[in-house]
């Protein structure tokens, strides 16, 4: 067989199992600790250090925008892949949260942080109540109806000339300092991200996934699936409203563009790139997509072409998503074996 090609096969070994079976590392040796903590560590420290590494004001702002989109992507991924509600209403959450916080701040004189907190809560409740009639809808029907909400709101504000009409609401307070603004949003993203990961692993998270996979069995178990869906929509829309409220205080302006469909669509693209159902993946997706879309600004309208090509490449070559791919590479040792 010296002339022909060798027969090879790819062998995959689970790293955790390999580590334990070889008995080299006792449980909780430092190597295993590093192995377990490393991914979390990279994400947390990476996000916290990023603003320090990039002294440019413009790009620091981009980091904040990344976090805003990451929150929306997290909210989308949670609803779509843990509860089975594919929502295109991200822009609706942003708009409701944004306008609520703007009104609370500029009309009622709430401090910026307080109005963000109240807008998150009230916005979550308002969005949930408005989406309540759509909860029995499934799949693409739910998606289409949720897409109507932000479109409707934008047109209504424009036509009725309410809430500042096309000019929007101006003169909104920013957060007390630029550093606080930066780290407040990063901190909240980390909080929501790890909080969500925890929620998904509780018994409640299990029930939510059951609602997605097997709703008839959940009903037969004496649980009202509509109320669980409503709870999930509240969690997701509160996160979206928080993102919107923060955005408004960053730009110090709330306008019709907070209902722009970018807020619905980009998080979905980020979820596809990052790996759906992983929660962390969508955040990573935003870390790639948002800066890329900033870089492509110079290309004018060609931007959309590049953007689509990048998306296409990901869907074709890494359809499982970066996170799923990364997890496999990290947790399994792969090697070629001659046979």
């Amino acid at each position: 067989m010296t002339t022909g090609t060798h027969q090879r096969r790819k062998e995959r070994i689970d790293r955790g199992i390999k580590v334990r079976t070889e008995g080299i590392y006792a449980l909780m040796s430092w190597r295993e600790l590093v192995y377990l903590i490393m991914p979390r560590f990279v994400i947390i420290v990476g996000l916290l250090v990023a603003p320090l590494m990039i002294p440019d004001m413009y790009w620091q702002r981009v980091i904040s925008i990344v976090c805003i989109y990451a929150l929306l992507a997290l909210s989308f991924d949670f609803l779509a892949h843990q509860v089975g509600l594919v929502s295109l209403g991200g822009a609706f959450f942003v708009g409701v949260g944004g306008y609520l916080s703007a009104v609370l701040n500029s009309v009622f004189g709430f401090a910026a942080l307080l109005s963000i907190a109240v807008a998150t809560l009230i916005g979550g409740i308002v969005c949930t109540l408005l989406l309540l009639p759509c909860l029995p809808l499934r799949g693409v029907y739910f998606a289409i109806v949720t897409l109507m909400y932000p479109l409707f709101m934008a047109r209504a504000i424009e036509a009725l000339d309410i809430l500042g009409g096309t000019d929007g609401i101006m003169g909104i307070d920013s957060l007390p300092s630029a550093w606080m603004e930066q780290y407040f949003i990063i901190g909240m993203l980390l909080l929501f991200l790890f909080g969500m990961r925890r929620l998904v692993n509780t018994d409640l998270g299990l029930v939510l996934r059951a609602v997605k996979d097997n709703d008839q069995a959940v009903r037969a178990s004496g649980m009202n699936i509509t109320s669980y869906k409503a709870l999930a929509v509240f969690i997701a829309s509160a996160i979206g409203c928080f993102a919107g409220a923060s955005l408004v205080h960053i730009y110090m302006w709330a306008g019709i563009s907070t209902f722009a469909l970018d807020f619905s669509v980009l998080p979905i693209a980020a979820t596809v790139i990052g790996g759906s159902g992983t929660l962390v993946g969508p955040v990573i997706g935003c870390l790639i997509l948002v800066p890329v879309s900033e870089l492509l600004r110079d290309f004018g309208t060609l931007r959309i072409v590049f953007y689509s090509l990048i998306l296409l490449a990901f869907v074709v070559f890494r359809s499982e998503g970066l996170m799923v791919y990364g997890q496999r590479k990290y947790h399994q040792i792969e090697r070629w074996k001659k046979i």
């Binding site: 018994d203 299990l206 029930v207 059951a210 996979d213 008839q216 069995a217 037969a220 178990s221």
Partner: peptide, 29 residues
């Protein structure tokens, strides 16, 4: 008043015992 399904409806992706965590979470349980 409970029922089984003729076309069985377990939660296929979960370990068997996790199937029962869901009904045990219900208000009645």
């Amino acid at each position: 008043l409970t029922r089984t399904f003729q076309i069985m409806r377990p939660y296929f992706s979960l370990p068997a015992y996790k199937n029962l965590v869901i009904p045990l979470f219900s208000p009645r349980a």
